[in-house]
Simulated scan of single mutants.
Amino acid sequence: MSNVSQITSPDVELRVLVYSHDAGTRSRVMSALGTRPHPDLPRLHYTEVATAPVVIEHMDAGGVGLAILDGEAAPTGGLGLAKQLRDELDTCPPILVLTGRPDDRWLADWSRADAAVPHPIDPLRLREAVTVLLEDD
């Protein structure tokens, strides 16, 4: 387990950036994960973002422990944004992308995302992917 997963104090929070132009998608992600998707992980604190420039601004500023990017977001999709962040940031937190369908996993690989979960969002699958990412971080 990583340092992140060993920090289980209720006072410790991990900042999760959730990007989608669709407020419903952002809400489903946050609902699926809740404040603590696994007892070995710190509490999650969400930053909701609806536009790519604001994602870049937050990521440049630092302090994000996990980015969840909607590959179906418009006008800037999360897959291209994930690739851009990987290419441009010296230090990049784990990135999970939401793909349009399971067959789009190859796009997630191209984007250099650490994990992918397809739409519609399955809460169990999303929690499992986030837990694995944060345990490995």
Rank of each mutant, 00 (worst) to 15 (best):
T51R: 14
D22S: 11
L98H: 05
W106T: 02
P118R: 12
R86L: 02
A115N: 07
G65H: 07
T76W: 05
V97F: 02
V54Y: 07
D90F: 12
T25N: 07
G78K: 12
M1L: 15
H58W: 08
A67G: 06
H58P: 01
V18C: 02
L85N: 04
T8A: 08
L69F: 00
L33P: 08
Y19S: 03
T25I: 13
E128W: 01
A52R: 01
S27M: 12
S31E: 15
G77T: 08
R105W: 11
D103W: 06
M30N: 02
L134W: 01
P120V: 03
L96K: 06
S2F: 10
A50C: 07
L79M: 13
R43Q: 14
A52Q: 03
D109Q: 15
D70Y: 09
G24V: 10
D137C: 13
S5A: 14
P75K: 02
I68K: 10
D70Q: 07
G34F: 01
R101L: 03
W110K: 00
G78E: 11
R86A: 02
D109L: 11
E13G: 01
A113S: 12
M59S: 09
D103L: 08
S2K: 11
G78S: 12
E135I: 00
A61F: 08
L134Q: 11
D104W: 12
V4A: 07
D40R: 01
R112T: 01
I95L: 15
D22C: 06
W106L: 12
R15A: 13
D22R: 09
Q84W: 05
E135D: 07
L44G: 12
V132P: 03
A116I: 06
D136R: 15
E72I: 03
E72T: 15
G62I: 09
V55T: 00
R36T: 06
L85Q: 04
A50R: 12
R127H: 03
A108L: 03
A50H: 11
K83C: 07
H58V: 01
A52K: 05
G80R: 11
E57F: 14
L14D: 07
V97T: 11
D60G: 08
T35R: 14
M30S: 10
V64G: 03
E88N: 13
R125N: 14
G100T: 03
L89P: 02
S27W: 14
E48D: 06
H58Y: 09
H119Q: 15
L14E: 04
V97H: 05
P37S: 03
L79G: 01
L85A: 12
D90M: 05
E128D: 15
E48T: 12
T47G: 05
E72R: 15
E13D: 08
R105P: 00
D40M: 00
P53N: 08
G24M: 10
R15G: 04
T8K: 09
R127Q: 13
